[in-house]
Design a protein around this nucleic acid. Structure first.
Lengths: 233, 233
DNA sequence: TTTTACCCTGACAGAAACTGTCAGTAGTGT
DNA sequence: ACACTACTGACAGTTTCTGTCAGGGTAAAA
């Protein structure tokens, strides 16, 4: 538990460009400042080159304990543009995560590649269109419900403008350029249903978890789709 | 406390030439065997390549130094979905690169995260629409020209269906959900011009390189765009 | 086949470590 | 002087960790 957090702390420090203050770290790791101070001390005692400056925050000597990752130019392009495309459409939390991935990968790269990362001339400007906004609206809630296997109660406006309210097992999300579709198992109809995120009127996460039933899982749904949509292996 | 011991354990395994049995490790670290089993399990979950064989003991793959990257669930989601979104629209070479990034990251991840990667229930099915196809058509050529700073000669069909042929300095690409736009400096007009990839009729890469002129570079173009499109912080 | 030498797991209660809170000191830059 | 931050000690409550016990496996030697 603590060990995990120590590694997370290291990761955050490595990824950060500027000094990080204890209170910021405390918040992002969901512990008190006091604990951060204790953790930092532990890391220092274990040899990590972390220095803290009053009024500033903590910094770690760069290059400390890094895994050797080697990406060629195409791979860097793919990584950066992929993350940018995601960030341009996803909810803020996921967009932050994308930035954090890029930061973590960046520090584990040779220096000349680090510049290349940020300067990649492949952009995906954040979309502020109405559709994009409504996609984002419940995205985070839905992602979490999928991950936690919590039932959702949603009201949905279908193509004919009719509103329906259902209890669902959220299974997965699929993106078709700018249309996001939530795949669910519908309790009422006893079958798989898909919902466009921009047509969801309300989404309520229940505390009730749905249990594992092979025939009602995402992979079962995918098998019903002719064009094997499973992305690469 | 425990963290310390985990490192000691790692050290002992690395230093040992022959397999070490749990009871020997227990004695040298002054804990019970049970604790050793638990510690080993923790290390394995953190990605350490330790294998235990009945009747023998534990050995670690040599050359292993440190549990490397750590991504949380959101970060893994961002990485995977970002790469999938990219792969759904990009040219085959870039799509392959995306797969390769995922593979490289996967191997540097703790065991339990590796599964999570492939099973992420966030998809972006490859788009086979006409528009997607025409986006892909010259994408690779263009990416390389941007990277190599080689002039392009293109014929383009603009909104009014008029065809034009130009010599361009390709500077960057921008993605707006399913529309890909190539930003260029146009030699003829002496200004920046944008071209939709799906409106390009022909693209020819010349061997002539364009030289560096700050006012004709991508970052100069970006400054002319009000909505600071530079991604991430 | 039996024995030996190990790996590995679950349960549980007591021990130890960790944590938040509070209260206070000290350094650094504006 | 003020704002902001690193740091430390003490203490009680909570969580995690540990050892013990009681099994179940596997692979090779005897």
């Amino acid at each position: 538990m603590r060990t995990q957090r120590l590694f997370q702390l290291l990761d955050k420090l490595r990824a950060a460009k500027y000094p990080l203050a204890a209170n910021a770290l405390a918040e992002s790791l969901n512990v008190s400042e006091r604990t951060i101070y204790r953790d930092i001390k532990s890391l220092q005692q274990m040899g990590a080159p972390i220095r803290g400056e009053s009024g500033l925050g903590y910094q770690i000597e760069k290059g400390y304990f890094l895994p050797p990752l080697h990406f060629n130019r195409d791979e860097l392009d793919a990584l950066v543009l992929g993350l940018r495309m995601l960030a341009s459409q996803a909810d803020p939390q996921l967009a932050d995560a994308a930035a954090s991935v890029q930061a973590k990968v960046a520090v584990s790269l040779p220096e000349h590649s680090q510049d290349a990362l940020a300067r990649t001339p492949l952009l995906a400007p954040p979309s502020q269109s109405e559709k994009a906004q409504s996609n984002r609206r419940y995205m985070q809630k839905i992602r979490h419900a999928i991950a936690d296997r919590k039932k959702l109660i949603v009201t949905y406006k279908d193509i004919s403008q009719a509103q329906t309210k259902r209890t669902l097992h959220p299974l997965g999300l699929a993106v078709f350029s700018d249309i996001w579709v939530l795949t669910c198992y519908c309790e009422l109809r006893n079958s798989f249903r898909n919902f466009r995120l921009d047509r969801l009127l309300t989404v309520h996460t229940t505390e009730e978890k749905f249990s594992f039933e092979p025939s009602k899982e995402f992979h079962a749904f995918l098998k019903t789709v002719p064009n094997g949509n499973e992305q690469q292996k």
